[in-house]
Design a protein around this nucleic acid. Structure first.
Lengths: 349, 349
DNA sequence: GATTTTAGCACAATCGTTTGACTTCAGGGG
DNA sequence: CCCCTGAAGTCAAACGATTGTGCTAAAATC
C-alpha cells in the first residue's frame, strides 16, 4: 500500500479507501481511484490479513478443535465446517486435541491468542472450564458433537439418545435382548447420552440392564476389540453388540472374526456412525448415520451469528436428527424374541 | 501489557522484555521482573499472536492445503502434519481445496495474506504457477503427495512408481496378465507416476499395455465404480484390477459386488492406500501402504528448515518408501500364468 | 464580492508487540 | 572534581492496515 501510495504521490489512506471500494463514500476522484486500482493490480497487491486483523479486532478466521482428525466422523465434520466457513468468508485454524484435555486446553488458548473470531470445538472430556470461561468473556464458542448441559455453551450435536434408542429398538424388535454396549471413554456427555438411550430403550421394553454388558473404555479400535473379546467370552455371551462409534465397531468386528464367529449368524452388530465402507464389509453393517453436513453448517451458523452479535435466543442449540440404516448385520431371532415375551411380558411395538 | 505496565508504573517495553524472559539480558531488577510476572499471572495475560506476528513478520503458523480432508489418506496426512507442526511450535491454518484448482489457488492466496510462515500443499492439479511463483518469491512452500518435476518446488511424496510396480508385480507373479488400471483424474503427477509404474512393470515382464484396460477419470467412489463396471463388461474382462486410491477401490468393490462376482475367486483386486477397515472387508484387500507419519513429518521438517533459512541443499525432497501388504484379495492363477508364459515368454522373477 | 458548500485529499492515531537507541542516576577510579 | 561505567529503565519507531478529523482549494450561493 505504501508503494502504491508513493508511486502515485497520494496518501495511504486514500489507497486503503479506494481498495476497499469506498471511493464514492469518500469522494475520491474517478481518475485517482482508477490509478490506484490499476497500480494495485500491477503490483498484484493483496491485503495483509494480520495487520487488518489487528486493526479491526477480527481476523475472519474460526478456530476448530477436534479430538482426532483421522477419525472419519471428525474428518467429515471438519470438511463441512471448512466448507460452511469458507462460504461465509472465514478460514479455519485447525487444532487436533489428540483426545487429550491438556492439548485441547492449550489449543483453545492458542486459538484465542490468534484472535480467531470464534471457536468450534468437539470436546474430548468432561471438564469445560476453559470453554465456559471463554463463553463468559463473551467469546463466541460453540460445541459440536459433544456438549455440556447447564453450562450455557451452545452446541450442535446429533441426537445421540434417539440414535442409541433406534439402534437398540432395532435389535429388540429382532428378538435380541442380550445386548452388549461397547462404549468408548465413558466420562463424556456423548457416552452418557448414548448409554442413556441404550438403557432407556431397554427399560421401555421392560428389560433389565446388566452391568457386565456395558464394556469398553476408549474410542479406539483396540478398546473395542478387547471389550468385545471379553464380553464374547462370557458364559452367556450377548446375541448382539452395539458399538458406540466407528473405530470401536471395527475393533468389535476384529474380535468377532478372531473368535471365528459370523455376523449376523452367530452375533448381530449395530454401530453408531455411518461410513462409506460399511457397505463393503464382510457383512454390511447396520448403522446409525449422522448428518455431517448439518452438523458442520449448524455450528458455523451459530458461531457466525454469535460473532455478528445477533444472538436472538439466549442459548440456541441444535440437535440434528440421525437415522438408522439397515444393512443386514442384525439377525432376526424369532424364537428368542417370543421366548422372551412369555417370560418378561415386555412391551411390544 | 498496557494494563500491567500502568499498574506497576513501568513502561510497556519493560513488561515485554520481562515476559519474554529477557530480564537478565536487559538488566531488569529482580523485583520488577517478579512484579511483572506476578501481575501477568493475575490478569492471566497471554500475548496477542496477531500483533506479534505483525511486528515479527512471522506467525508461527503453517498453511496446509489438501484436496479433500474427508479422504482417509489426507485426513491422516493432516493429522501427522498437525502433530509435527505442533511439536515445533506451529499451528495449522487448514484449507480444503475440494479438488478444485481455483479453490486451491484462492486458498494459497488467503494463506499468504494470513502471513503463514510456510505452506504445505497437496496439489490437486497440474497447474502450478501459484506454487512456483510463491517459491520464486522465496516463500517457503513444500508439496506433499503430489509434486511438479522440474519446478524446483521441494516435495515429500510416497514412492508412487515403486508402489505401483510392487502391486503389479504381485499380480503378475500370481499369474495375472490381464490387469485393469482403475485410475483417478489422469492429469496429475501422481497419476502419471502410478500409471508409469504400472506400465513399466508390465513392460519388464514383456506384456503389452492395452489402452482399454486403463480406465477411470476421477478420484471418487463413483468414478471407480463406473470404470470397473465398464471394464468388467468387456468380452475379455481383466482377471485383476488395480485401484489407484482408496475411494476408487471402494467403487471397484461395489461394481464387482453388483456384478455378483467374488474376490478373489472371479477377480483379484489390489489397491493403493492402506486403511484400517480393509481388514474387515468382505475380502481383506491387498494394498500398497503409505507411511503417513513420515510424509507429515517430512513436509514439516522441510518447511521449517526452509523457514529458518537453513536450506542446505537447493531442492531437497523426500520420497517415502511404501510397502505391499498382502491380505488375500489376489488369487493365484497358475494355469493362466503358465499359459501366458508359453505365449509371451515373459520375464520371470 | 463575501460566504458557504463540497470535492478531493492528507494527517495522525490506533490495534498489541518488539526493539534499537536513549536517559538517568549511583558509584568508582583517577 | 571530572570522567567513566554499569544498572535499571524509558522513548519512540516500527509492522500494515483502517478511520475520524482536518485541511485546501474550487465551485456554488446569495
Amino acid at each position: 500500500m505504501r508503494l502504491i501510495a508513493a508511486e502515485l504521490g497520494v496518501s495511504v489512506s486514500l489507497v486503503s479507501r479506494a481498495l476497499s471500494g469506498k471511493a464514492k463514500e469518500f469522494r475520491i476522484s474517478q481518475s485517482t481511484e482508477q490509478a490506484i486500482l490499476k497500480s494495485a493490480k500491477r503490483h498484484n497487491y493483496s491485503p495483509n490479513r494480520v495487520a487488518r486483523g489487528l486493526r479491526l479486532g477480527k481476523t475472519n478466521t474460526l478456530g476448530l478443535v477436534v479430538p482426532n482428525i483421522s477419525n472419519f466422523f471428525y474428518s467429515n465434520v471438519v470438511r463441512q465446517v471448512e466448507r460452511a466457513a469458507r462460504d461465509k468468508g472465514f478460514s479455519i485454524l485447525l487444532a487436533d486435541s489428540q483426545d487429550d484435555e491438556d492439548v485441547e486446553r492449550k489449543s483453545v488458548t492458542i486459538l484465542r491468542e490468534s484472535m480467531v473470531d470464534g471457536i468450534a470445538i468437539a470436546p474430548c472430556g468432561l471438564r469445560c472450564d476453559h470453554i465456559v470461561s471463554a463463553k463468559e468473556e463473551k467469546f463466541p464458542i460453540v460445541c459440536v458433537d459433544g456438549y455440556f448441559p447447564d453450562s450455557g455453551v451452545p452446541y450442535v450435536i446429533s441426537d445421540h439418545i434417539a440414535g442409541a434408542r433406534m439402534a437398540v429398538r432395532h435389535l429388540l424388535e429382532n428378538g435380541h435382548s442380550e445386548i452388549a454396549f461397547v462404549q468408548g471413554y465413558p466420562d463424556v456427555q456423548v457416552s452418557y447420552d448414548r448409554l442413556g438411550g441404550f438403557k432407556a430403550e431397554l427399560a421401555d421394553y421392560g428389560i433389565a440392564v446388566k452391568d457386565h454388558m456395558i464394556v469398553g473404555e476408549q474410542f479406539s479400535y483396540q478398546s473395542g476389540y478387547e471389550a468385545a473379546r471379553k464380553v464374547l467370552e462370557r458364559q452367556h455371551p450377548p446375541t448382539a453388540l452395539f458399538a458406540v462409534n466407528n473405530e470401536i465397531a471395527l475393533g468389535v468386528l476384529g474380535a468377532i472374526q478372531e473368535k471365528g464367529l459370523s455376523v449376523p449368524g452367530d452375533v448381530s452388530v449395530v454401530a453408531f456412525d455411518d461410513l462409506p465402507w460399511v457397505l463393503h464389509l464382510r457383512i454390511p453393517l447396520t448403522t446409525v448415520a449422522q448428518n455431517y453436513e448439518e452438523l458442520g453448517q449448524g455450528v458455523v451458523d451459530l458461531l457466525v451469528q454469535s460473532i455478528q452479535g445477533d444472538t436472538p435466543q439466549q442459548s440456541v442449540s441444535v440437535v440434528v436428527p440421525v437415522r438408522l440404516v439397515e444393512r443386514g448385520s442384525v439377525r432376526k431371532l424369532r424364537s428368542l424374541r417370543n421366548a422372551h415375551h412369555e417370560i418378561s411380558s415386555s412391551k411390544i411395538l
